[in-house]
Design a protein around this nucleic acid. Structure first.
Length: 428
RNA sequence: GGAGAGGUGGCAGAGUGGUCGAAUGCGCUCGACUUGAAAUCGAGUGUACUGCAAAGUACCGUGGGUUCGAAUCCCACCCUCUCCGCCA
């Protein structure tokens, strides 16, 4: 959520930053107008309320000091009180309605891109920051089977039957496939815990307030699975439950930074991506992910962002999977992010780098929505924290990358060295 | 799912219609005393919004209602705890 005060005080600047997202759907003019009306109303209403409070106190005092409760003096005061009540009864709903309109409108606005975020229209203008692991690129790209084919051949990924029991875009992992997924999860968690993150195993179902807190709602309701009879949704990422752990809390500055890692399944409706990535593990309604979440002091969020990206990269490096780091341009930036780096892993079968991690600095955007604040010792008042999150990593996509990059001409797949202890084997 | 109890400030806990943003205790901050500390004493100690400010307004689980006036009365909902049922 953007700061209404900032919108009012620097409208041109805010609008200009919103426009960088290459969309004309984010307009602040209406919000400024509504806010102006609301504040005028509030001033009037408060004046009436003040008088009304005075009358209430006065009546109490008079009665206590012996005035006749049914006498003229009290009657006159009550009459004025009633008059005020009638007026307030009109103003209050009006103001409430304005406030509701403002907050509904402001919840639809995305975060402002950081000044340093490269300006661009679409993903085509994302900026490659660095590339790693060229020496690990497979030489025989053309002879490498796509991961779904090798997976099926090895009998470790079950596509057809999974569609029967659920729907398309669901898979089951069988035997060594399931074990490999589990090994990857444990490996990733162990690494991130060693890097200083505290593991969390959060609920996989969360309420509307939580999804609103991190920015998935109200705008992207069609992206999440919703339960019919309860105010519960399936989590699209662990970012939502883990960040919301601290919703509506005032933390001590000394508690910051907070680092969490979490393995959870993630559920996404993938509405509007019908034709894309219909085969394999790339785009599923349910997938596993190890997520990194940081809650930090605003002054440190930039460096915390850089180190979070490094923590995600470390997994790919340990697995010796070639990847590149992109800085997303303003046109491709996620709703809650001010700045975002994507890690893309090399997928030989498609001859492309594919996203395997997305690391965002959400600055105070989520903290405002979720009211995650902190207090500095000795200082008055509270400040909004900064929240960051990143995948460390998407597990299914990592498995895809291993099945392809580690594929051998004889149709077997080597297991990355660091995973061997977890899996108890060297080859699939 | 059934029966009962309860949700008040950082915590504990009082408050059943009027000056209650809320007693008291603990905690915390500052000061005094002390060589230092403890103890003791004194002062202070919620958040948000509007406003240049003075100040005002709102908040006692949430939302409605009654009233000149609600933490206090009424209604609905949510949550927590105990017991029973079911259950990984």
């Amino acid at each position: 959520m953007l700061d209404l005060k900032q919108i009012r005080e620097n409208p041109e600047k805010v609008q200009e930053l919103l426009d960088r997202r290459n969309s004309d759907q984010y307009q602040i003019e209406q919000i400024i107008n509504l806010s102006q009306q609301q504040r005028e109303l509030e001033t009037t209403r408060t004046e009436l309320q003040t008088r009304s409070n005075e009358i209430g106190k006065l009546i109490g005092q008079k009665i206590k000091s012996g005035s006749d409760p049914a006498g003229d003096e009290i009657k006159t005061l009550k009459a004025e009180g009633n008059e005020l009540k009638t007026k307030l009864g009109k103003l209050e709903p009006e103001e409430k309605d304005l406030k509701a309109q403002i907050s509904a409108a402001i919840l639809e606005l995305p975060n402002l891109p950081a000044q340093t975020t490269p300006i661009g229209k679409s993903e085509a203008e994302n900026v490659e920051v660095r590339r790693w692991g060229d020496e690990y690129l497979p030489e025989n790209n053309d002879s490498i089977l796509p991961h779904w084919e090798i997976g099926e051949k090895l009998g470790i990924i079950e596509f057809g039957r999974s569609v029967k029991i659920a729907q398309s875009r669901f898979v089951s992992l069988i035997g060594a496939g399931a074990a490999l997924e589990r090994a990857l999860i444990n490996f990733m968690l162990d690494r991130q815990i060693a890097a200083g993150y505290t593991e969390v195993m959060p609920p996989a179902l969360i309420n509307t307030a939580s999804l609103t807190g991190t920015g998935q709602l109200p705008k992207f309701a069609e992206e999440s699975f919703q339960c019919q009879d309860d105010d519960l949704w399936l989590i699209p990422t662990a970012e939502v439950p883990v960040t919301n752990l601290y919703r509506e809390e005032v933390l001590e500055a000394s508690q910051l930074p907070i680092y969490h890692c979490a393995y959870t399944p993630c559920f996404r409706r993938e509405a509007g991506s019908y034709g894309k990535d219909t085969r394999g593990l790339i785009r599923l309604h349910q997938f596993n992910k190890v997520e990194l979440v940081k809650i930090v002091h605003p002054d440190t969020s930039e460096q915390e962002h850089q180190s979070l990206v490094k923590n995600a990269e470390a997994i790919l490096q340990a697995l010796k999977l070639p990847y590149r780091v992109l800085e997303l341009c303003t046109g491709d930036l996620g709703f809650s992010a001010a700045k975002c780096y994507d890690l893309e892993v090399w997928l030989p079968s498609s001859g492309k780098y594919r996203e395997i991690s997305s690391c965002s600095n959400c600055t105070d955007f989520q903290a405002r929505r979720a009211s995650i604040r902190f207090k500095e010792a000795g200082k008055k008042g509270t400040k909004f924290a900064h929240t960051l999150n990143g995948s460390g990593l998407a597990v299914g996509r990592t498995m895809s990358a291993i099945l392809e990059n580690y594929q051998q001409p004889d149709g077997t797949v080597r297991i990355p060295e660091v995973l061997q202890p977890y899996l108890g084997r060297k080859i699939l």
